[in-house]
């Protein structure tokens, strides 16, 4: 420790600008990396994007036959619908559970239970997605077949449940932070006016912490949209416009993961997978951007 301090001393008047420069470089590099990734992904797909791909068909056709010998078709509508439906289903399950658990942990449970729950939630967050996929493939699959009496359990429902389980820990921990940030004097004021603890939650805490809670939900959405391995293993991987939760579906992410290894480098198929990557990138970018706007809007109005 001492020697480090000495080094800084010897750096003398140059020390500070150097350190400042390094820190600045770290910050800027984050931006460079993001643009770099976008650029390289886009460059791989560019050749086909400008030469040959029918963008309208790409976005509106559910026909995904990239390896057909006679008639290759590159429509990703079914894949978009797959990603969308699994994400919506996952959020439909995860948001009530996640926010409910956040409220319970932050407002209703005793300190000991709170510690235990937080450890369990962190553990859940640390489970790798292949393991989740494996659980979906075995346990959940069997369960769905048994419970709903359907021929296959690798469906939108399965993927949605697994994704929900993966997003709940994020929603709980960010949501709990948001509730913890509400000053205790608000709770005390409301209780002294005769509000029950439940009334305190929905009349005071939810309106006050809505920004943080919204951020928690959107981070959960982000996790669900970007998740690959678990959905690849659990949704059945069938290119199909979903009509019910018991249909097998395929997502954008899973398509890239499954097909990139087989596509010949430089082929149209290979390039179109990169265009899907750009599409995914744009979706997450828009989600984040909208989140920012929403949160800013709320903040300014408040």
């Amino acid at each position: 420790m001492r020697t480090i301090v000495n080094i800084f001393h010897q750096l003398g008047r140059w020390g500070e600008p150097v350190i400042e420069g390094i820190i600045r470089l770290c910050g800027i590099s984050a931006i460079i990396f993001v643009f770099g990734i976008f650029f390289f992904v886009f460059r791989e797909g560019m050749g086909f994007f400008f030469g040959g791909l029918d963008i309208v068909e790409f976005l509106t056709s559910p026909e995904w036959y990239p390896t057909s010998v006679s008639n290759k078709r590159y429509g990703v509508l079914a894949l978009i619908a797959g990603t969308f439906s699994v994400t919506v289903l996952a959020m439909f399950l995860a948001v009530p559970f996640g926010l409910g658990a956040a409220i319970f942990v932050s407002e209703f449970c005793g300190p000991k239970l709170k510690e235990t729950l937080k450890i369990v939630i962190e553990l859940l967050a640390a489970i790798p997605s292949v393991v989740w996929g494996f659980i979906g493939l075995t346990v959940m699959n069997a369960l769905i077949i048994d419970l709903f009496n359907v021929p296959i359990g690798l469906t939108m429902l399965n993927g949605g449940i697994i994704l929900a389980l993966m997003s709940v820990p994020i929603i709980v921990s960010i949501g709990e932070d948001a509730l913890k940030a509400v000053p205790d004097s608000y709770r005390e004021a409301a209780e002294a006016l005769g509000a029950t603890r439940w009334q305190v939650v929905y009349r005071v805490l939810l309106p006050t912490a809505k920004n943080g809670l919204l951020a928690a939900v959107l981070l959960g959405v982000g996790r669900a949209v970007g998740e690959t391995m678990a959905v690849l293993m659990t949704t059945g991987h069938a290119v199909k416009m979903p009509t019910s939760p018991f249909d097998s579906v395929r997502t954008l992410t899973a398509t890239i993961a499954a097909e990139l290894g087989e596509a010949a480098v430089g082929s149209d198929h290979y390039r179109v997978l990169f265009i899907i990557g750009v599409l995914l990138f744009s979706i997450t970018f828009i989600v984040n951007f909208v989140t920012d706007l929403v949160i800013k809007g709320i903040r300014e109005k408040a």
Partner: peptide, 9 residues
């Protein structure tokens, strides 16, 4: 209370 604590509404 000692510190005025109106609710944030």
């Amino acid at each position: 209370f000692q510190r005025p604590n109106p609710l944030p509404i």
